[in-house]
Simulated scan of single mutants.
Amino acid sequence: MLVGYARVSTVEQSVDLQIEALRAAGCTKVFSEQQSGTSVKGRLKLDEAIEFVREGDVLVITRIDRLARSIGDLQDIVRQLKRKGVSLRATEQPIDTSTAAGKAFFDMLGVFAEFETNLRRERQSEGIAAAKARGVYKGRKPTVPTSEVVQLLASGMRPSDVARKLGIGRTSVYAARNMQQVT
Rank of each mutant, 00 (worst) to 15 (best):
V78G: 02
K132T: 07
A129I: 04
V149Q: 03
I128S: 08
K132Q: 13
Q151E: 14
L81T: 02
A154F: 02
I95W: 00
T117Q: 14
L166D: 09
T146N: 11
K165T: 15
E114D: 09
N118G: 13
P94A: 05
S98G: 13
M157Q: 11
L119M: 14
V144C: 09
K141N: 07
Q75L: 11
F115M: 14
V86F: 01
L119Q: 15
A133T: 08
R83V: 08
K165V: 08
Q124Y: 07
T91E: 02
F105W: 07
R140S: 15
L74M: 06
K84N: 03
I71R: 08
S125L: 08
A133D: 10
G110F: 00
V162Y: 03
S155Y: 05
T91S: 04
D107T: 14
A129W: 04
L88T: 01
S98W: 01
R83E: 11
T97S: 02
E116P: 06
T91W: 01
A113Q: 06
A130P: 03
K82T: 12
G139Q: 10
E122R: 12
F106D: 00
N118I: 07
T97E: 02
T117S: 15
R89L: 10
T91K: 00
E92D: 13
M108C: 08
F112N: 11
T97M: 00
Q80M: 13
Q151W: 05
M108D: 07
K103W: 03
S125I: 08
D76T: 12
R121S: 14
S70K: 15
E126V: 10
S147P: 05
D73E: 09
I168G: 05
G167F: 08
A104K: 12
L81R: 04
F112A: 13
E148F: 04
S155L: 09
F105K: 08
Q124V: 14
N118R: 14
G102L: 04
R140E: 09
I95K: 00
T146R: 13
R121H: 11
D96G: 00
L153G: 04
G72V: 11
R79P: 00
K132R: 13
Y137R: 06
E122I: 08
G110P: 03
R89D: 02
R120W: 09
S147E: 14
T117K: 12
I168K: 05
K132S: 07
A113I: 08
L81Y: 05
T91I: 03
Q80C: 12
D73W: 01
E116V: 10
M108Q: 14
G139R: 13
G72H: 14
V144I: 14
S160P: 15
R89T: 03
D107Y: 11
A100S: 14
L166N: 09
G135F: 01
L74Y: 01
F106S: 00
I168V: 15
A101I: 10
A129F: 05
S155D: 09
R164K: 15
T117C: 11
F115W: 13
R83L: 11
T91Q: 02
D76S: 11
P159F: 06
E116F: 10
R164T: 15
G85I: 02
G127H: 06
K132E: 11
L166Q: 12
P145K: 12
I128Q: 08
V78N: 01
K165R: 15
K165E: 13
Q151N: 11
A133R: 14
